[in-house]
Write a protein that binds this DNA or RNA. Structure first.
Length: 418
RNA sequence: GGAGAGGUGGCCGAGCUGGUUUAAGGCGUACGCCUGCUAAGCGUAUGUAGGGGAAACUCUACCGAGGGUUCGAAUCCCUCCUUCUCCGCCA
């Protein structure tokens, strides 16, 4: 959610920002409703003031035994007027709130304009592996342990099933990544995998992504599309002390995505599935330090890839590729040797105070003064399926066996998976 | 799922036979006083949001959410959400 003062003061800026994100918004309609609301509010407050006075007069007169019929009649009359105006303003409030929830966050000034084609490669690391044989895609290398047809029988197409070493490999990776984050000072969170509409609205999956989420209608719950939802919502409606910032969290969750309308698009194998596992990093920051925190999250995630020896590149997303809530986002892409392409394995976003406003997440400044909205950030650290793709395809050998990075070999109890 | 008890300001907690409570008191926090230092003690201030004012200040709303009764609701009634206790069911 954006600051109402900003909407009033610089509607043009908000409209341009929405345009840059390919979102259509009607700012004129908002401005009109807002000014109507403020005029009505003045009237209402005046009437309430009158009624309070009359009530007090009634109270005084009754205490000393005088007749207060006149005041009571006047007060009743005022009350009737109020009821009408209050119902008008409630309608306006509802429509304002609905509009505001559909206004996207404003991209930072250093975010390039335009669509995907304007994303900027900031840096890259590692050598793209070369083979003296034809590198195979992961679905061939994992033929025995990755069984999408079985998952299809159980849950439907585009769900996945691992068995044997693949199942263990995923569990090992989750555990390794969590330990890596904990080592760096984050607190591990394990949270519900479903969330209420209010939670989805706070982190801004709602209203826009409604069609992309699995919904449990009878209990009015959604399956989470990312760990960001429960972990960030841990602090919804909370007031933090400035001394307790930053809050650094991580956690494992499955992520459920309907991927409506994406069938047939890069969805072979593990590339794009309805349920995938992910370790997420979440950070609540002081507004002055969120830029630094954003870089730190990025570097922390890329460091992890360096330990695993996976070639990657970092993109700064252009405005049109930014999510609804983000002000700025880095994507990390890793190399898939079997498919010879880059795969997005992490999005690291700064939402500034956008989610904090929606979720009422604030801190009290240590010098005293009014509570302020915090800045929220998050990043995948990392998404499992594509990480597995890269490790398996990049580590493959001529005989179809897979060589593991040393960090994982120890935990898997073998250096080579056969 | 059944029965019962709660949800009050950063936290705890009174009020809940409707009108000097437009929320007592405590903790915490800030500043000051006092004390050789520290602790204790004393004093003052301290909720959130919005409006008006140069400012001191002032007005309005908010006691889980929404609706109702009333001249007037934290207080009475209804619906919902949520927490806890006990029982049932299930892993």
């Amino acid at each position: 959610m954006l600051d109402r003062k900003l909407l009033r003061k610089e509607p043009q800026k908000v409209a341009e920002a929405a345009m840059a994100k390919n979102e259509k918004i009607d700012i004129e309609q908002w401005i009109e409703a807002d000014s109507t609301r403020r005029a009505l509010m003045l009237e209402i407050e005046d009437l309430r003031k009158q009624r309070n006075k009359l009530s007090k007069a009634v109270s005084m007169k009754k205490r000393i035994g005088e007749n207060a019929d006149e005041e009571m009649a006047l007060s009743r009359n005022t009350g009737e007027k109020l009821t009408l105006l209050e119902s008008n303003i409630a309608d306006i409030d509802a429509s304002l709130a609905e509009m505001e929830k559909s206004f996207p966050n404003i991209p930072d000034s250093d975010v390039p304009l335009g669509g995907e084609e304007n994303n900027v490669v900031l840096r890259s690391w590692g050598e793209i592996p070369e083979f003296n044989f034809r590198p195979r895609p992961h679905w061939e290398l994992m033929d025995n342990v990755f069984q999408p047809e079985a998952a299809g029988r159980i849950a439907g197409s585009n769900f996945i099933l691992f068995r044997g070493w693949a199942a263990k490999f995923q569990r090992t990776l989750i555990s390794w990544m969590l330990d890596y984050h904990i080592e760096a000072g984050m607190e591990e969170i394990w949270a519900p995998f479903v969330a209420k509409p209010e939670s989805m609205t706070a982190t801004a999956q709602l209203p826009k992504m409604d069609d992309d989420m699995y919904k449990i209608g009878r209990d009015n719950l959604y399956l989470i599309p990312t760990g960001e939802v429960p972990i960030t919502n841990l602090y919804r409606d909370q007031l933090l002390e400035e001394a307790n910032l930053p809050v650094r969290l991580c956690g494992y969750t499955p992520c459920f995505r309907r991927e409506a309308g994406s069938y047939g698009k890069d969805n072979r194998g593990l590339n794009r599935v309805h349920q995938f596992e992910k370790v997420e990093m979440v950070r609540l920051e002081h507004p002055d330090r969120s830029d630094k925190a954003h870089e730190e999250l990025l570097n922390h995630a890329t460091c992890m890839l360096e330990v695993l020896g996976i070639p990657y590149r970092v993109l700064l997303l252009a405005s049109g590729d930014l999510s609804f809530a983000a002000a700025k986002c880095f994507d990390i892409e890793i190399w898939s040797a079997g498919q010879e392409k880059w795969l997005e394995v992490s999005s690291i976003s700064n939402f500034r105070d956008f989610q904090a406003r929606r979720g009422n997440m604030r801190y009290r400044p240590s010098g005293g003064g009014k509570p302020q909205f915090i800045h929220t950030l998050n990043g995948s650290g990392l998404a499992l399926p594509r990480l597995i793709i890269s490790l398996v395809e990049n580590g493959q050998q001529a005989d179809g066996s897979i060589k593991l990075p040393s960090a994982l070999a120890e935990r898997m109890g073998t250096e080579v998976i056969r």
